[in-house]
Design a protein around this nucleic acid. Structure first.
Lengths: 154, 154
DNA sequence: TATTGTTATACTCTATAACTATA
DNA sequence: TATAGTTATAGAGTATAACAATA
């Protein structure tokens, strides 16, 4: 006998991710930030002195997209950019005092949010969960067959 | 002793979801569709005769946003819209022949993709995984404390 | 008045291509 | 020529507000 209609795993994943990301972004917005500002701040704090090229890779976006976000953050007084004297092509990005304050504020929100998400779970459950996430990422990396025989389905 | 730095669960989730959604959208694009077209087609097939209001809710977007997508799909000849004689405010959306063909084509791609994602997992593992996803959605629903004491951090 | 859907408009995030400056 | 970053531009997806048609 056949199992009773398997839910597409990617659909379930993206649905939950969409909901949680929206809620997280809401929380960040209420604290004066945003999801993308948070990701950039996090990358800055975890990779001090990194070039924008490296930062963009950490965040998972293109360099030009990072420039876009940094422009906004610089206008908001959260970061400064100056040329590296060692290699004047490289721009060193640093948090201002306001940027540090914003980071601290958003960190509290992020921790609170994470605690809320983890409510009712055991560490083992969540470890198994993130293990599955990692394996899914590996599976996505594998190329699938091209749908070349689908063109004339109708 | 303290556990060695817990990864924020939402960050792990959104990272994997971003990767898989991008790969899925790529696959859909190669087959002549897109992720959002697929979601709308799926909603149409699973909710025949539904109003746009209902469809939008199924997809998880606003009515105006659905109109936007339907405009594109109607221009592409995938759907038709006509007024419901019973209640002429309601527009009945139906797949054309081309729309049905597109659905069939994208369904193959979606199934292939899902099979690829599931590779190496047992049903039990994936059931546990989707169970965690559902519980996370519930946790997101719970309101967190307002960060009212952060306003004057500086 | 309430409901269904559309139009107009705009915002966010993202990307690519062409450019500047440095090496 | 190659590398780091910026500027200009665009596109996808989303949203809100104002509107038209219908009930």
């Amino acid at each position: 006998m056949r199992p009773p209609a398997r839910i597409p795993i990617g659909l379930a994943l993206s649905r939950t991710a969409k909901l949680t990301s929206a809620a997280f972004d809401d929380a960040m917005t209420r604290a004066g930030g945003s999801l993308s500002i948070w990701l950039v701040l996090l990358a800055l704090k975890s990779n001090k002195g990194a070039s924008q090229r490296e930062l963009a890779e950490v965040v998972g976006i293109q360099g030009a997209t990072l420039t876009h976000h940094l422009n906004g953050m610089e206008n908001a007084g959260l970061v400064t950019r100056r040329r590296d004297p060692e290699n004047r092509r490289v721009h060193i990005v640093e948090l201002t005092e306001d940027g540090e304050a914003m980071f601290g504020r958003l960190l509290l929100v992020a921790k609170d949010f994470d605690g809320r998400l983890r409510a009712g779970f055991t560490e083992a459950e969540l470890d198994a969960f993130t293990g599955v996430l990692r394996r899914l990422e590996r599976n996505v990396g594998q190329p699938g067959r091209e749908p070349d025989d689908c063109a004339d389905v109708e």
